[in-house]
Nucleic acid binder design. Sequence first.
DNA 1: TCCAGCCACTTTTTT
DNA 2: AGTGGCTGGA
Length: 769
Amino acid sequence: MHPSPLLNGLNDEQRHAVLLPDTHALILAGAGSGKTRVLTTRMAWLLQSQRCSPGGILAVTFTNKAAREMLTRLQAMLPLNVRGMWVGTFHGLCNRMLRAHWKLVALPQAFQILDTQDQLSALKRVYKANGIDEERLPIKPTQWFIAGCKEDGLRPNDVDARDPDTRKRVEIYALYEAQCQREGVVDFGELMLRSYELLRDNTALREHYQHRFSHVLVDEFQDTNRLQYAWLKLLCGPQTSLFAVGDDDQSIYAFRGARVGNMADFVREFEVQHTIKLEQNYRSHSNILDSANALIGHNKNRLGKNLRTDAGAGEPVRVVALSTDLAEAQWLVEEIRHLKREGREATGGTGVDRLDEVAVLYRSNAQSRVLETALFNAGMPYRVYGGMRFFERAEIKHALAYLRLLDNPNDDTSFLRVVNFPPRGIGARSIEQLQDAARAQGASLSQAVAQVSGAAGAKLNGFIALLDVIREAGQGQPLRQWVELVLQHSGLIEHYRKDREGEDRIDNLNELVTAAESFVTQEGFGKQAPGSEESAWVNPDTGETESPLSAFLTHAALESGDNQAQAGQEAVQLMTVHSAKGLEFDAVFITGMEEALFPHENALNDLDGLEEERRLMYVAITRARKRLYLSHTEQRMLHGQTRFHIRSRFIDELPEQAIKWIHQTHPAGAGHGWSAGGRAGGSMAWSSQSAAPWSGSAGAPAAVAQPKAQAESRHAWLKQGSQVFHTKFGEGTVLAVEGINDDARAQINFSRHGVKWLALSVAKLTPIA
DNA sequence: TCCAGCCACTTTTTT
DNA sequence: AGTGGCTGGA
């Protein structure tokens, strides 16, 4: 075998993985071990050595970003037409399959996709239509239940319901399914499940795909759920080899159905002969890596893997204790400044020279607010990941609902969303009338409009007429024109113009026009279908034409879009630990390192939950290349209440020699911890230098409000972790304390009586030494 | 029908 | 604290 430039720079483990023969393989790829590189090089190698044509490869990931990245890298290695390749997310590929076989799976050609919000409102309608009491059977858990069933591949008939609540939920599940089918919509789970069933029940088709795909490659295999694994099993025939890449230590999605056990099952069921560990880390200095290794060593359930690096020890991992969340934020700003300064002064120094090489991580989104305020007041640019995405914004969902109705008039979710938005005098009573009529006939709301008489009927007819006008005007027009027509005729723009806060929304709506335009360009809709003014997309799998509008709607549902495209700006990156997975930075700050926050309180009670939290921490640590900081506070505001926490056990699981404790110049806990600037000589001068833009009026910026005098609480002696005695309940351990003085209450785990919340002004508690 | 004010809720996230 | 849903008055 002559050497190929593709293999240049790969280490032995990596090269071994890339050059494996056409058999099943499991690659255990540690953090920063070049996982994506192996995956893409493997694909390039298969193609280059002519063992496989582009059409014979199916590569699947979890996020669109990962899929894009894979294609980009692949194209950089080989000149390649990507069109016929099946590279995408699980949901994207399932969608592709269902579109190709829409008749077989009994869906309308223009079936639409419900996102989580849509699913909830669809479920609400099921509740209403069937007189189900939301109080008795809360709706969110029902939504989770249905999603969970689908993740396990279960239809209502397959669920083993043992208690009355579950039986009721199964009933609702069946009703919900019927409703979706009637309306021609599918939720995310349904995309997967129906695609699975298509392969399962249709032998000819299954064999076709099995024959077609000689190589299936899976990224982040540890995150697959039952159904996804089952789907992969159907896709792989006797001639197919499955190349799975994953890391059990980075499995952090059990809460949404991911099953690490799939890795072991894969090895057993596919009789995997080749398991390769990638343990060479190219990312972090060894203090950071040692910390990660030591931490994850505390987990019992592991396949076992230890990362090593050739990089030097580097800087120690710094641990800081602060008094309050506010102090933490202020310290963070100061430390980032310091890093930046260091980076600029010394080339090759240990600082950072770009702010976007700094990431601030937290366990839950609620923690970002204080940090944002501090960064904002300091005039330091930052970017927050997560939260509202473009296609999830209310105004965008409204505009999309109009477009969806134009494409599929039976989409009742969209109908209800915009039938009276902007307000056009169609109230709850009219809608109820309409829903009754629709129910009586088993018809969709659009279809039932004709049945409603009187004033309500007239107004409803007006709405239908509005849609007809747009449809008429859009005939033969390009996609961009359809969006503009909707914006013009729906009255959305006008509506928001009246709203003083509506300016951003109007901007976003205009942005939607741009998005439509660039979608057409990027997806290659430019080619005109023969004999038609309207551009159309020819499905490469079936040769059928699909309207740009439906394709765009699918795109909007499957790719919720980046949240804030402040691209180009050099900014500190703020995100949850979950969304940091797969990314890396020179400097990483992990904030809120406190019990009940990280590990999260909901996970404290069971071992599996705790191990998942630890893996989450492992992910967080391994994001850092050169610098890692952990910070924790004594008190912080959470849901509007002050809470006291002790430092996270995870800090104590790190190796002493790899970390360095940073001490504040001012004693913490006196209620002024926020004024400490970080290292010695730090001052608070900067906080007044960079006043917030709105602080033209006298007074300190909002963020620098004085912390409440928590230290003076009568119950200050009572801290998380203290042992207490109660005259009635006996001995217990304090899990959490909230509020101060008369409002103070504590959550206590009594060894005899379990966990209870007690008001401290009432309960008689004494400390146990 | 519409809007304002009140109440309950709050993990992590992608599709 | 902030958001979203719901109720009651205009």
